[in-house]
Design a protein around this nucleic acid. Structure first.
Lengths: 245, 245
DNA sequence: GCAAAAGTGTTGTCCTTACACCCATGC
DNA sequence: GCATGGGTGTAAGGACAACACTTTTGC
């Protein structure tokens, strides 16, 4: 390292060097796409719009937009979600980047997919630009860009995640019955589960709070309602060790 | 969709529109950083260089470089690894993007981390630019940029991955003893495992091929050598279903 | 023969699975 | 009273954890 007397200006010089290096890098347009899963009528849904690109007219698209200068990817994801839906009390997880050079018809654009889960009823859609709507995941066909691939990857991500973390509770109302919970798991995992074993499983985890209320207005015997004990889960997050492949 | 007589030129027009849109996006310099784990002397190592940025003189850095125009992120990762180490027969997995606006002193640069595992002895380092060397993961302190954070995230990624997929075998020689395998798992997971149970576990998975050879030149009773049955693993990849959190 | 690690079984515990009946409610 | 789903227990099997002694080799 070249030492010189003026420490501060030396530092400034180093930063200028770094800046010059960065300026020599190719620059790429960057977008974020939000894959927002919801659960409604016992079906897993995903929040989509009609593509606003004429070339994809009529095709469905994820909620996405460019990343602004000096904007964190995560902030971009939250901003986009807010702009497009009015929602701001959700969490978003980065899934991965999609970078095929031909994925965008307008030239090279790299996108980072963010995934989120939320309760459809809890979050009314206030903005309906571009026909924003919940679309059943199972009946998705062609989409704009590589968005079908992105949804597929995020769906697999979700299937895995929901077995390791109680993300599913974000898809349910605050108060829910065990049947609703089981429906959710069955819908996402695409399997059916034994009711008694399912109940035992969650009972033994001791993460559900019995709030001493019952379902209302159901055409059959009402079930008990529970809340999820997020605090307890956070305290006791399991450190999984096992080898299985 | 506006129809017009000239289908092709209409399409060209749509592409021009898309191109215009993309051109309006801010552009960001993008890099890829490779986190290459290796295993040597019963320790988990990571491949590092000395940072070539003067401002980080003396600090350690990951193998990284800019992403070229029209280059897939994955291709960039493989290219960088090849350029820096001469290696080309490894696999790389995308871990995630790091996008803090101030993560690079030269201005905003987003990086995508790719992770890989390889057998230190199998891959001699032919290129030693910037003091390329294997560095113990456990004794890493400060690094250039946010590279310490990236290594930490990739290490956690590895710990999780190795419990679900037999990635660990990429870190071992083709022929290995059960002791070496166990050492690997213990080193990566940072726990100690019961020898008998460990052997039973792998025996019951039936993914090791007994090649009827013994260790040579060990100062104690030699152990049997095995190969990993990659084909069988690929055929029977487990579809894990379980809820545990 | 001694040091060092290889190799090997059993037992108890816990978790998972499979399975069937009665109960509460709305209509 | 009947249809619908809510709620519950048990037994068998499988996986996992804990644990100690004998064997083989190099020195």
């Amino acid at each position: 390292m070249k030492k010189n007397a003026a420490g501060v200006s030396h530092n400034a010089h180093l930063i200028a060097d770094a800046r010059e290096l960065v300026n020599s890098y190719p620059k790429v347009p960057l977008t974020v796409d939000c894959v927002i899963f919801g659960f409604e009528e016992n079906k897993l849904k995903v929040l989509l719009i009609k593509s606003d690109l004429a070339i994809y007219e009529g095709k469905l698209s994820l909620l996405g937009d460019m990343v602004k200068d000096d904007e964190d990817l995560e902030n971009a994801a939250y901003r986009i979600l807010k702009e497009r839906t009015g929602m701001n009390d959700v969490f978003l997880d980065q899934v991965r980047a999609f970078s095929h050079p031909a994925r965008h018809p307008g030239g090279r654009v790299i996108t980072i997919a963010y995934c989120s889960l939320l309760n459809v009823n809890h979050h009314e859609l206030k903005i309906h630009d571009n026909d924003l709507h919940w679309h059943s995941v199972s009946s998705l066909s062609e989409m704009a860009f590589d968005h079908k691939e992105i949804v597929d990857v995020c769906y697999q991500w979700l299937q895995k995640r929901i077995q390791e973390h109680p993300l599913g509770f974000n898809l349910l109302p605050e108060k829910f019955s065990l049947r609703e919970l089981q429906n959710l798991y069955e819908a996402i995992l695409g399997i059916s589960l034994d009711r008694r074993n399912f109940r035992k499983k969650f009972a033994s985890m001791d993460l559900l709070i019995d709030i001493d209320e019952m379902e209302q207005d159901v055409p059959h015997r009402p079930g008990k309602l529970y809340k999820f004990n997020f605090e307890k889960y956070e305290r006791n997050k399991r450190k999984w060790v096992g080898i299985d492949f």
